Simulated assay, not measured.
Amino acid sequence: MFRALLSLALASFALLASAARYPSYGTLQTINSSGVLNVMINNTYSSVNLFDLHIQSDLANLIETLQANDTDIRVAVFSSANKDSFLAHININYFLPGYGASLTFNFLMACDMRFASTSPSVILSQLETSLGTNPGAAGAMYLSHLIGRGRTFEYVLSSYDVDTVTAERIGWINTAFATSSELHTYVQGLAARIALFPAAGIAGMKQEINAVNRPPREVSCRIRRT
């Protein structure tokens, strides 16, 4: 079951809502090796890996497949095929009439762990307030458990960009690495180690941790338009 997996994001931003079903994962390149599913995001419809309906649909299909099948996958690691952009913010058109705000999904905040490089090009942000809306799918709720209530207000209400050194210091990400090589080596090693252990133990521990630091689904999926 996918809920038993740990999800790790490389270099910035992980997971999502419902969408139309596609026959394949056109924007996702997947490799399953010894219990670790590496998922490389490659939105060829966008030069900046824009989070659009293509990515959303493919992620929905991937998650549905993992939920429906009894696989040996223990950990999902998300990375990017785009060297300049891990994942750009959601298509602003989603906020226009005719689109649902429920399409907004905070990819990074849905991950269980987050790792990044200290490259100046890696920036984190919750910019929804500047657009007159709020982070959908519990982005701000998750963030408040990571960096605290006061800091969440500071960064969400200001829509400030945050560098990864600062993000590591305040707990937004687990670790910021000096080089991409160090980043990938550590995350792959961590994923491989976790994948050695029984799925039941991983699932049980994840459920216990989530019980105290994640909002109920009926709350996290409630979207308020302004």
Rank of each mutant, 00 (worst) to 15 (best):
L5W: 03
S18P: 09
A19C: 11
R21H: 11
Y22V: 13
T27R: 14
T27W: 10
Q29A: 10
V36A: 05
M40P: 02
N42S: 13
Y45P: 02
S46K: 05
S46E: 05
S47D: 12
N49E: 00
N49K: 04
D52E: 06
L53Y: 10
I55T: 04
I55W: 00
D58H: 13
N61V: 08
L62E: 01
I63L: 11
N69V: 12
D70H: 12
D70E: 14
T71F: 10
I73M: 11
R74Q: 14
A76N: 03
V77E: 07
N82W: 04
K83E: 06
D84H: 09
F86G: 03
F86P: 01
L87R: 03
H89S: 01
N91Q: 15
I92V: 07
F95I: 10
G98F: 09
A101G: 07
A101Q: 12
M109P: 02
M109D: 12
D112L: 01
M113I: 04
R114I: 08
F115P: 01
P120L: 06
I123W: 04
Q126G: 04
Q126T: 10
A138M: 01
A140M: 00
M141K: 12
G148A: 08
F153E: 14
Y155L: 04
L157F: 07
S158M: 00
Y160I: 00
T164Y: 12
I170W: 02
G171S: 00
G171Y: 00
N174R: 15
T175R: 15
T175Q: 15
T175K: 15
S180D: 06
S181F: 09
L183T: 02
L183W: 03
G189T: 07
L190E: 06
A191C: 12
R193T: 15
F197A: 01
A199K: 12
G201F: 02
I202H: 02
A203T: 04
I209R: 15
I209V: 14
I209K: 07
R217D: 13
V219Q: 07
S220C: 08
S220R: 14
I223M: 13
I223W: 06
T226I: 06
T226E: 07
